[in-house]
Design a protein around this nucleic acid. Structure first.
Length: 211
DNA sequence: CTCCCGATAT
DNA sequence: ATATCAGGAG
């Protein structure tokens, strides 16, 4: 079967299972989403949400983060891991927002990628969820599942991003990434993928058909 | 390629 | 007790 038609079938099935998808990261504005997404590096959304309520209650704006001590920020975000790097990144990021964007979050991929602690995954999450701009988020779930499904042969997330953009219609980019993430958490898990109950089993090169 | 770190599954 | 999970920077 051709890659595009196979992909189309995969899209259709995922859309039927997860009709409405959105980031699980709790946020009330683009800045909170940006911070939450930086925190989500190598960390589950659930874990991020467990710290952001108190974090944003204490520090609400880029200005607040710039004026806070690194120690205070570190203390608030510690459970998300890599807290020294993240605290530094979020504060420097806030400083750049103040200096270059009047405290607003910029709305292009290029500008977002300039921000400390913001890579392609984070930038695409913010583009999609805060600005409604098409972007293909390639996190660990998207990477794992794309490879298992045979949608890419690449290992580099940026290359996977471009591979997926070629075979998925642009309108679907944001939702497709989100759906793979939902699907990755529930079925196509890193440790014990539930192949026997998988709705994509027949379209999958990886699937364990023996069970 | 290495470093950064806590939480959870096994 | 330890392996595994989860992105970005240098």
């Amino acid at each position: 079967m051709k890659i595009k038609t196979r992909t189309h079938n995969i899209c259709k099935i995922l859309k039927a299972i997860y009709p409405h998808v959105k980031t699980q990261l709790q946020h009330r504005n683009p800045f909170e989403l940006l911070v939450a997404t930086i925190l989500s590096a190598q960390c589950t959304d659930k874990q991020v949400n467990s710290v952001t309520k108190k974090l944003f209650d204490t520090l609400a704006s880029p200005d607040d983060f710039v004026n806070a001590s690194l120690e205070d920020i570190e203390k608030l975000i510690r459970p998300t891991g890599y807290f020294r790097n993240k605290a530094k990144n979020i504060r420097n990021c806030s400083k750049m927002l103040m200096e270059k964007y009047n405290g607003d979050v910029p709305g292009t991929l290029e500008e977002l990628l300039e921000l400390p602690g913001v890579g392609r995954k984070t930038a695409n999450v913010v583009l999609g969820a805060a600005f409604g701009i098409p972007g293909m988020v390639v996190d660990t779930h998207v990477k794992r599942i794309s490879k298992r499904l045979g949608l890419t042969k690449n290992t580099d997330p940026a290359k996977i991003e471009f591979d997926l953009m070629k075979i998925i219609p642009q309108k679907e980019w944001n939702d497709f990434g989100l759906r793979l993430i939902y699907f990755g958490r529930a079925v196509c898990k890193a440790r014990k993928p539930n192949c026997p109950d998988c709705p994509l089993c027949h379209l999958c090169e990886y699937s364990d058909k023996s069970a």
